[in-house]
Structures are given as C-alpha cells and as structure tokens.
C-alpha cells in the first residue's frame, strides 16, 4: 500500500522515459507499419486500415513482374528491373569505393610523401561539397564519356561523392593498426602488397565493413544523380521508380496508383539497409571485444 502511495507521490522518471520512448516509436514506426500493412493487404487502400486478408501476391507481382489481374490501377511494368538496377548501382558503388578507399587510405596512412597534409585536406573538403553543386560539370563529363542512361555511370558518380568520406574513415582504421604487424609480415617474407592482403586487410575487417555498408547505402538511396543521369524508365533504380509511380499518375492518386505492389516494392527497398545494419552490428561488436582482450 505504502509502496504505491510513494510511487504516486514521487513522479517516476521511468514513466516519463516510457512516454517519450513511445511517442518517438509511434512517430518512427507508424509509417513503417502502414507500409507493411498495405503491402500484404488483399485490398490495399491509401490509408491505414485493418487488412481484410493477408496476401503475398504483391511481393510476387513485384518480383516476377506479373501484374495482378482484375485491378483497375495501372501496374508499372519495370518493377523487377528497378530492383536489379538498384542492386547493380549499389554493388558497383561498393566495388569502386572499397578498392579506391583501400588504396588511398593505405597510402595516406603508411607512406610519407610531400604534400600529404594538403592532399588530405583537399579530400576532406571535397567530401563536404554537396554533389549537386557540381552536377553540371559531372553531367557534361558523363555525357562525353557516354555514361548517361548507364547504371555504371550512376555508380561512378555516386562513388565519387562518398569516396572522400570513406577514405577518411578507413584511414582511421589503418592508423590504429600497429605498424609492428606489418613490419613483422615483411620480416616473415611478405612484400608490401601481400602484407596488405594477408595482415592488414583482415585486421581492418570492421573498417572495410563500414565502408562497404555506407557506400552500398549511398548507391541504394541515390535519387538526384539517377534523376539527372537516367532517362529511360526501365533503367530507373527503385528510388526513381517509386517516385515515378506517383508522378506518372497525377490527380486522384488513390484511384490510379497500384498501392499493393508499390508498397511491396517500398518494403523490399527498405530491407537491405536494415539487414546490413543488423549483420554489421554483430560483426563490429565481436571484433571490438576481441581487440580489447588482446591489449
């Protein structure tokens, strides 16, 4: 009895915390719930509703490019292709960024050369520069090189935008790795390159993972660059695709947008980020623990 009275008498901070937490979660999670609900609703409507029935037909439609018959909404015919396009852009971005960031950050971390500090400042500055500020020269460059309407072209431009930041991040990981390890590898008979592959890279795994993760996301989420560089609808990445669903059908959007497949596509669009995050988080934790134990 007295315990309850006491609780009422003293405002509990935990209660306050719960209120804040629940408000935040409602704010963040409602759209997500809405999206999920619509994507599995047998009768998708553009507002949050209790589904009459649950179906995965919309996902199948998206993944197999087969429209659900009987609806009166226009079904975008390239959804499957958009997913592939996004994967190509993101994958290529990852490859470009990881290779270049490893080369650049290793050199910046380990080699001594004239003008290194200036170079590092320039790299940092170019990372701060908004891509859109340079879009005109970039567009002209892409046109000259035949990279308009080209997924690899999008990846190259996106990679160039994220590369400076990634170089700095990876350089931090290289800097932390004791030079002893590398020198010991040389003593054991490695040349510089094999020491990098056998000793350094395996020990900056978390750094590589972070860089790969961030560059994947910058490719996956890219919108403005594909907007400018991609003209043909079948070359759209998912981001442009979803937008186009709305743009192509002006007016009473509720009547013409095919909400089921669109939401299913949006759910699929969100999955890689979440999955990668979960995957990476565990890896990061594991490696940090191991590191702590060594010394």
């Amino acid at each position: 009895m007295s315990g309850i009275l006491k609780k009422i008498g003293e405002p509990s901070y935990t209660l306050l915390e719960y209120v804040v937490l629940i408000t935040l979660m409602t704010y963040v999670l409602t759209p997500l719930l809405w999206l999920l609900e619509t994507s599995v609703n047998t009768d998708p409507v553009p507002y949050l509703s209790i589904p009459k029935g649950i179906t995965i037909d919309h996902f199948i439609a998206v993944l197999t490019n087969r429209p659900i018959t009987g609806g009166y909404a226009a079904h975008p015919v390239y959804m499957t292709r958009w997913i592939v396009n996004s994967l190509i852009i993101s994958g290529t971005t990852v490859i470009i960024v990881v290779i270049l960031a490893v080369l650049a950050s290793y050199s910046l971390s380990r080699l001594r050369f004239r003008g290194k500090n200036l170079l590092m400042t320039l790299i940092l500055l170019s990372g701060f520069m908004p891509r859109m500020a340079m879009i005109l020269p970039l567009f002209q460059l892409c046109r000259t090189l035949g990279l308009v309407d080209n997924l690899i072209g999008v990846a190259i431009v996106v990679a160039s935008g994220t590369l400076p930041t990634q170089i700095w991040i990876l350089k931090g990981f290289f800097d932390q790795l004791p030079r002893d390890l590398e020198e010991q590898a040389w003593i054991c008979g490695c040349d510089r390159v094999s020491a990098v592959f056998r000793i350094i890279l395996p020990n900056v795994g978390p750094g590589l993972a972070v860089v790969a993760f961030m560059s994947f996301l910058s490719g996956w989420g890219a919108f403005t660059i594909p907007l400018i560089l991609i003209r043909r609808e079948y070359l759209f990445p998912i981001s442009l695709g979803i937008a186009s669903v709305f743009i192509h059908n002006p007016g009473e959007i509720g009547l013409v947008v095919d909400y089921g497949p669109t939401c299913a596509l949006a759910v699929l669009y969100a999955i890689p980020s979440i999955a990668l995050y979960i995957l990476l988080r565990e890896r990061l934790m594991e490696i940090r623990l191991a590191r702590l134990e060594v010394r």
Binding site: P178, D180, L181, E183, Q184, A185, W186, I187, C188, G189, C190, D191, I199, P202, N203, G205, A290, R291, V294
Partner: peptide, 20 residues
C-alpha cells in the same frame, strides 16, 4: 637488400602476433 630477403627473424617488444 629488402627486408624480406634478409632471412632475419625479429621478435618485437610487443610480440606483434597476428591477431586474426
């Protein structure tokens, strides 16, 4: 002569064991 061709072994004060 480059390090790797000297057939010299060295034990560092830190041991420098390869953690992975």
């Amino acid at each position: 002569v480059p390090v790797r061709e000297r057939n010299v072994s060295m034990v560092f004060q830190s041991y420098a064991l390869f953690p992975h």
